[in-house]
């Protein structure tokens, strides 16, 4: 090879290397987070969940919820079981949350840190909206076959000030999320398990387990079923519609 070609080849090699690395570079933390959101659930869907609270002695309490979501931040969940909670419905619009108790009739505002079910899951976990709607990506690290996303809440209304989210590099699904208060205290750890094909192109973990240093030896589990894409009119996500959410079920 003649000498004058050597620098050109060198530049070409660097260019090719950069081009090859481009997809990885292009997938920045925010893109990963948005993909995680869409891989977990379609933007508009309905689904069933069983929520199990497990006490240290193994005693359990179970709840079954029918949930619908639209857009990045509109969620409704209706209790189907147990009978004592049947008909209760919760609505979330961004940072706003309400609980409708049939006997009371009137929706009450609730806050993200409270829990309508007791146990380790709070309302923000039960009425979860897109992570990208609530958090900004502060940093991204490579951690073997996972990405580690460091997330910071966009506003003070968000339940957890910071999240550490480990994401499966291949599936772009969360594996573990640690939730921290503004003081830096670890509030809880969420573990996603049992990835399953729900049909309609939805493949995601079917089990979410959580424990918390604040609830020693307690555990809460969410099991997912019948996740289906479905569009709903905006009016479904309003206070006046809360008592009628049951009518959405087919």
């Amino acid at each position: 090879m003649s000498d004058y070609r050597k620098p050109i080849m060198k530049k070409l090699s660097v260019l090719l290397f950069l081009l090859a690395a481009l997809p990885a570079l292009a997938l920045d933390g925010t893109d990963i987070l948005k993909k995680v959101d869409r891989n977990l659930e379609p933007e508009a869907y309905e689904m069933l969940r069983k929520l199990i609270n497990v006490e240290p002695d193994g005693k359990r309490k179970e709840f079954v919820l029918y949930s619908v979501k639209k857009g990045r931040d509109k969620v409704v969940a209706l209790f189907l079981a147990p009978q004592s909670d049947k008909g209760r419905a919760t609505l979330r619009l961004g940072d706003n949350m309400w609980l409708h108790i049939p006997e009371v009739g009137k929706p009450m505002r609730i806050t993200s840190l409270q829990s309508v079910t007791g146990g380790v899951f709070n309302n923000a976990d039960i009425l979860r909206i897109d992570y990208a709607a609530e958090y900004d990506v502060e940093g991204t690290e490579d951690d073997k076959d996972q990405y580690l996303l460091k997330l910071k809440a966009k506003t003070a209304e968000v339940a957890y000030d910071r999240l550490k989210m480990w994401v499966d590099r291949k599936a772009l699904l969360p594996v573990t999320i640690e939730c921290y208060a503004a003081s830096g205290m670890l509030i809880k750890t969420l573990r996603f398990k049992d990835t399953k094909d729900f049909g309609g192109g939805i493949r995601r973990p079917a089990t979410l387990e959580t424990d918390s240093p604040l609830y020693k030896d307690y555990k809460s589990v969410m099991l997912y079923a019948q996740i289906k894409k479905r569009e709903f009119p905006d009016e479904v996500f309003s206070l006046n519609y809360l008592p009628r959410v049951e009518d959405l079920r087919k």
């Binding site: 079954v64 099991l223 079923a225 079920r249």
Partner: peptide, 16 residues
């Protein structure tokens, strides 16, 4: 941890 979601299919008459 098991979840038989078919148990929760909607019925035309609900009672409780």
């Amino acid at each position: 941890f098991t979840f038989d979601s078919a148990e929760f299919a909607k019925k035309p008459f609900e009672f409780g």
